[in-house]
C-alpha cells in the first residue's frame, strides 16, 4: 500500500502552475532578470543613463583589472572577511561557551547581546559616527578621562578608518553569531559532559574533544554566513566612509553603487562589470563550501 502510494502522482500539471508560478514570476522578474541584465550590461560601454549603450566586449573588465580603486575595494572586502572569521566568530564562540555554564540572567544576556541586530544599520551607522566624533564623541571622551586634551579623527584617517568601521560592524553581528553558537551548544546532550567528567577530563579537554567537534556544523554555518556577508557588505561602509578618498573607503558593493549612482558618474556598464565580478567571486567562494558541507 505504502509502496504504491509513494509512486502515485498526487498533483496535476495545473497544480504545479498554481503553486509555483507566482513565486517563480516574482523571483524571475526581480532577482534573475536583473542578474542576467547585469551580465549583459557588463559587455557594454555605457557611461551615462542618457546615452546609448555600445557593445565593447571585455573592455570593461580589462579596465577594471587595471583600476586601483577596484583592487583596494577587493582588498577591503577580504579584510572584512578575515576580520569576521578571526575576530567576530572566536569572540562569539567564547561568549557562547561562557553562557553554556549555569549563568545568572542567561536569557537576558542572550536578548541583550542580540539587540544590535534589530536596529536598522543606517541608525547604527549614525550612532557610531557620533561615537567616533573626534572631540565630543563617546570614544574620545572616554579616553580623555585618562589623557586630557585627547582628540582623534577616528573615521577620517585613510589608513585606519576601515578598521574602526569594522569594529562597529562587529558590534552589530557578534550577538547574532553568539545566539547561533548557543543554539548549537544546547544540542549537545548533557550525558556527554557528565561521562567526560566522570572519566576525569579537564574543562579544556571537554571543550576540545567534545564541544568543538559537536558544533562543527554550526561553525560551518556561521562561517558561510560571515563570508557571504562580508563579500556583499554595504551599509556601514557606505554610510560611515563618506569623507575619505576613493581608494580607502570602498568595498566592492559601495564601489558598484558609487560608479552607477553617484552624481556625475552614471557609469552603468563599468559598474555592472564590477557587479558581475562580485557575483562570480561569491559563487566561487561559497559553492565549494556548500558542496563540502553536503558531503559531510
Amino acid at each position: 500500500m505504502n509502496l504504491f502510494k509513494s509512486h502515485a502522482k498526487n498533483y496535476s500539471f495545473q497544480d504545479l502552475g498554481i503553486f509555483l508560478l507566482p513565486a517563480f514570476t516574482i523571483y524571475a522578474l526581480f532577482v534573475l532578470a536583473p542578474v542576467f541584465l547585469s551580465f549583459r550590461n557588463s559587455f557594454y560601454y555605457w557611461d551615462s543613463p542618457l546615452s546609448e549603450a555600445r557593445f565593447c566586449a571585455l573592455q570593461n573588465f580589462r579596465l577594471l583589472f587595471r583600476d586601483p580603486v577596484f583592487w583596494s575595494a577587493l582588498r577591503h572586502n577580504f579584510f572584512l572577511l578575515f576580520g569576521s572569521l578571526l575576530f567576530q566568530l572566536p569572540l562569539a564562540l567564547g561568549l557562547a561557551l561562557l553562557l553554556n555554564y549555569p549563568t545568572w540572567g542567561r536569557g537576558f544576556l542572550r536578548t541583550a547581546f542580540f539587540t544590535p541586530m534589530i536596529i536598522p544599520s543606517s541608525a547604527t551607522a549614525v550612532l557610531w559616527q557620533y561615537i567616533y566624533e573626534p572631540q565630543s564623541g563617546l570614544l574620545s571622551a572616554l579616553i580623555r578621562i585618562f589623557r586630557p586634551d585627547f582628540a582623534y579623527a577616528w573615521l577620517s584617517s585613510p589608513g585606519s578608518s576601515l578598521f574602526w568601521i569594522f569594529i562597529s560592524i562587529s558590534w552589530q553581528y557578534i550577538g547574532f553569531h553568539t545566539v547561533l553558537f548557543m543554539a548549537g551548544l544546547s544540542s549537545i546532550p548533557e550525558e556527554l559532559y557528565e561521562a567526560a567528567r566522570l572519566d576525569g577530563a579537564s574543562e579544556w579537554q571537554i571543550c576540545r574533544r567534545i564541544v568543538l567537534p559537536c558544533i562543527r556544523p554550526t561553525l560551518g554555518v556561521s562561517a558561510t554566513l560571515s563570508i557571504i556577508g562580508s563579500l556583499k557588505y554595504f551599509d556601514l561602509v557606505y554610510l560611515m566612509g563618506g569623507g575619505l578618498p576613493d581608494s580607502s573607503r570602498e568595498v566592492l558593493a559601495t564601489y558598484i553603487y558609487r560608479l552607477a549612482f553617484d552624481e556625475n558618474q552614471g557609469r552603468y556598464g563599468y559598474g555592472s562589470s564590477a557587479a558581475v565580478l562580485l557575483f562570480i567571486l561569491a559563487l566561487i567562494i561559497v559553492i565549494p563550501l556548500q558542496a563540502r558541507k553536503n558531503q559531510v
Binding site: P34, S38, N41, K232, F279
Partner: peptide
C-alpha cells in the same frame, strides 16, 4: 541566498 543585492541595483533601476 548568494546573490548580492548590489548586483541587481543597476538593472532594477532600469527595469
Amino acid at each position: 541566498l548568494m546573490i548580492p543585492v548590489h548586483v541587481t541595483l543597476i538593472p532594477l533601476n532600469q527595469l
